[in-house]
Design a protein around this nucleic acid. Structure first.
Length: 363
DNA sequence: CACCGATCGTATCTACACCG
DNA sequence: CGGTGTAGATACGATCGGTG
């Protein structure tokens, strides 16, 4: 059950925020404050609590919820009246805040356990529109757009490969002529994790070309844009509504407790100096990104780095590739992500300037 | 054998063609 | 012209396997 652990961490976080100290004391039915949880879901949750392999991560989730309850920048020990769980259903439309829980109608909480993925977008949306529009329904195959020759070559070799190995299969002469049945067939035929030896070279050429062209296009769009920080904010999921991230980091599963600020907060402290993009040699088309940020009233600069994979999403050749944005810098070091208990609003005149900087950045 | 980066998967939503 | 089926898209992360 893929989503079971996700559900369990979200519900454990909610329990923690309600003051529960351990998953072992979890009630037999959802607490009255917790809304949107079916009894059947709660039963599945109760079962996963018994599972020792997930006990450690659920304990961290409970602790995160409790920290949220205690935190001066969050609940300040006021036990919530309502915690709404969004559940497995997705929000409608173009989501800017990835919240799983909503506490007392206002506190939005995203539970993020061991994930460095920031956003999944269509390549056109990310590289050409810089995430500034609503996602378009019509998008093209980015591989074909950026590497038409390499893509065609890969398809031709795939056709030969399939004929040689699976026999009596007649795929159309061009990729464009594939129907859905053909595509599903190709997906199955190429379901091995590694590409077949015969195709590996062509696939690597495709990767290299797509990476280079993507970096070029993305760089040009960024250079042409008046305010590239708008792209950075979208990538970091910084939007008009502040929210909280509770979870664990991918590295060593350390606790991760953040308040994600808004562009308003961001502009008070930071300025984007540059946003650079370069192709990366990898097993799939990849571009690296890197933002240099200066801190206002201070000589210091910060860097945020990550990469984007441009990858097949539902199996090879099935449908248009997607762009998956990763954050490689630890969350805690990202300007705009504030550790839960820092009081960056402490800007009273009595506070010496250097102390203000300390309280903001050095926790 | 835990860890972590690289690679791959699925549920659900939206837009749109098609149908009566 | 509203209901419905379907393709294409996003949001979410799972899992594999090399490595120290």
């Amino acid at each position: 059950m893929p989503a079971e652990l996700t559900v369990a961490t979200e519900l454990s976080t909610a329990l923690g925020a309600l003051g529960y100290e351990s998953v072992s004391t979890a009630p037999k039915s959802p607490p009255p404050q917790l809304q949107g949880v079916e009894f059947a879901t709660w039963e599945i949750f109760s079962r996963s609590v018994q599972n020792h392999s997930v006990a450690a991560i659920l304990t961290k989730a409970i602790e995160n919820g409790r920290a949220f309850l205690e935190s001066e920048s969050a609940l300040r020990r006021r036990v919530p009246a309502i915690i709404e769980w969004r559940g497995p259903t997705r929000t409608t439309g173009f989501e800017l805040v990835p919240a799983d829980l909503r506490i007392d109608h206002v506190y939005l909480v995203s539970c993020k356990y061991a994930s460095n993925v920031l956003i999944n977008a269509s390549p056109t949306h990310l590289f050409e529109h810089l995430l500034q529009t609503r996602p378009q329904s019509k998008s093209h195959n980015w591989y074909q757009e950026t590497a038409p020759l390499e893509f065609a070559e890969l398809y031709q070799l795939t056709r030969i490969y399939v004929n040689n190995h699976l026999g009596n299969v007649h795929l159309p002469a061009s990729f464009e002529a594939l129907d859905n049945k053909d595509k599903r067939f190709l997906k199955t035929a190429l379901s091995e994790r590694r590409w077949p030896e015969e195709l590996r070279g062509a696939y690597m050429s495709l990767c290299e070309r797509v990476s280079k062209e993507t970096a070029k296009i993305w760089n040009e769009q960024i250079k042409a844009h008046q305010r590239p920080e708008l792209l950075l904010w979208r990538m970091l999921r910084i939007s008009e509504a502040p929210y909280f991230v509770l979870g664990v980091s991918t590295r060593r599963h350390e606790q991760l407790r953040l308040r994600v600020g808004t562009p308003w907060d961001w502009n008070r402290f930071y300025r984007l100096r540059s946003f650079e993009v370069s192709p990366k040699a990898s097993g799939q088309p990849t571009v690296d990104w890197r933002a240099i940020i200066s801190i206002k009233n201070c000589k210091e600069t910060r860097e945020i780095a990550g990469h984007v994979e441009i990858r097949f999403s539902h199996g090879r050749f099935i449908q248009a590739p997607e762009a998956k944005v990763y954050l490689d810098t630890p969350h805690i070091e990202v300007p705009g992500y504030f550790p839960l208990n820092t009081d960056e609003y402490d800007l009273s005149p009595q506070t010496p300037h250097h102390r203000r900087q300390m309280s903001i950045f050095d926790l």
